[in-house]
Structure formats: C-alpha cells, structure tokens
C-alpha cells in the first residue's frame, strides 16, 4: 500500500492508500462528526452528517467522509458555510425524532440547530442502522432489520429469531445514538405481539 499526502483543513496529512477521508482525519486528530459510522461495521453513508468538501483534480464535491477514498493532493474542508448548513438542517430533521438525545444535543449546540424547527415525529429512530448492521455483521443473527421503505421505514425485530437470541445479547441497545430504550421497546413489542408486530405498535 502506498502513502498519499492530502490536506485536511489546511493541515498536511499522510494516509495510506485505500483509507477514507474520515480515517485519515482521525489519524491526524481532526474531528469529523459521525452518527451511523462504526469501525466494526461496513461503510453505510446514511446519516450524511460527516459530509465534507473534497477538492480533487480541480473538482470540488460534497461527499461523506466515511466513504470517500483519500487521494494524493486532495484538499478536504471539514467545515464551511455549506457544510454547517447541511449539518444544522440534518440535525434539526433528526431532532424531530429524538429531541433529548445527548449526542444530537451536543452536535446541535455546535451547529446552532433548533430542536423545535420541525414538528415532533412519533419515533425516536434516526435510522442509523447501527443495531441492524451490528446484529447482521458482527453477531450474524439478523434478529433485527428494517421493514417498509421510504418515509415509512422502521426497525423491527424478527420474533422467531429475537425470542431465541436477544435475551442473552442486547449488545445493540447501547449502540443507539438517540435512546437506548428504543430497541428494547421495539423488541418488547415484537415479542409481545409476534403475529402482527408492526401494525399493533
């Protein structure tokens, strides 16, 4: 693996080829906020909070730091007016679900996000999929997954698997960035009403 040199926030950073911008920034002690990223899990690029400005071969584009591969002479900006605006709005959209989440509140303070900007949403879930992916990729159990698509998408346990596996595990609970009880609540629902788990909740 070769070594590439790039600039992140005016700081020269050396990184290994194949690394992402996020990994390069972290190795240089530069902070980029993340929500759906987890070292043990595959890149997911769903929360979009790690968006940065990448200038490469004369072209500037916005992309997620957690997925964008580093390249020689790349210039990365982790903050700009545009990025602040994106992060602020994304946080406001997520705060509509979880206004009391500690991590969201901390970020909201940094970006001046107003948790009352959008009307409150009924679920705490911000769809980071950490629970879903952890169960699938690390535990290899697939006891929890997504049901429905689009704006109706939500997490749901598979009762047949969950009733066998979840009591002794529960490792996904603390991963949740919004409300540790979220998964527990959904799990309880799945096990109490295994026949029609989504409709009854």
């Amino acid at each position: 693996m070769g070594v590439v040199t790039l600039t992140i926030d005016n700081k020269e950073v050396k990184a290994e080829e194949g690394m992402t911008v996020l990994e390069a920034a972290q190795s240089a002690g530069i902070y980029i906020p993340t929500l759906c990223h987890h070292e043990k899990l595959e890149t997911y690029t769903a929360c979009r909070i790690c968006m940065v400005e990448v200038e490469s071969r004369g072209r500037v584009r916005l992309d997620t730091a957690c997925s964008h591969p580093v390249a020689n002479d790349m210039v990365v900006k982790t903050r700009s007016e545009k990025i602040n605006k994106i992060r602020k709005t994304l946080l406001e959209l997520m705060l509509a679900h979880a206004p009391d989440s500690a991590i969201l509140q901390e970020m909201a303070e940094e970006y001046g996000a107003d948790k009352g900007r959008f009307e409150k949403e009924s679920s705490f879930c911000i769809h980071c999929a950490l629970c879903v992916r952890y169960c699938a990729e690390v535990k290899k159990k697939n006891a929890i997954g997504f049901v429905n698509s689009g704006t109706k998408r939500e997490i749901s346990f598979v009762p047949e698997i969950a009733s066998q596996e979840c009591w002794k595990c529960k490792e996904c609970f603390p991963l949740c960035p919004t409300e540790a009880l979220q998964a527990a609540y959904v799990l309880a629902g799945a096990l109490t009403f295994p026949v029609a788990p989504f409709e009854l909740r």
Binding site: R48, M94, T151
Partner: peptide
C-alpha cells in the same frame, strides 16, 4: 410517490420528504 418509493436509507431524503409533505 417519492416518499413511498425512496428506500428510506439516508436522512435528507427520508426525513426531508416527510417534512416537506407535512
């Protein structure tokens, strides 16, 4: 239509459409 057909994976699309519709 898009809110139903979107996969719902990323925040701006899923949450943005929800709020726009509201």
């Amino acid at each position: 239509f898009l809110a139903n057909e979107s996969c719902g994976k990323c925040t701006p699309c899923r949450e943005g459409l929800k709020q726009m519709l509201r």
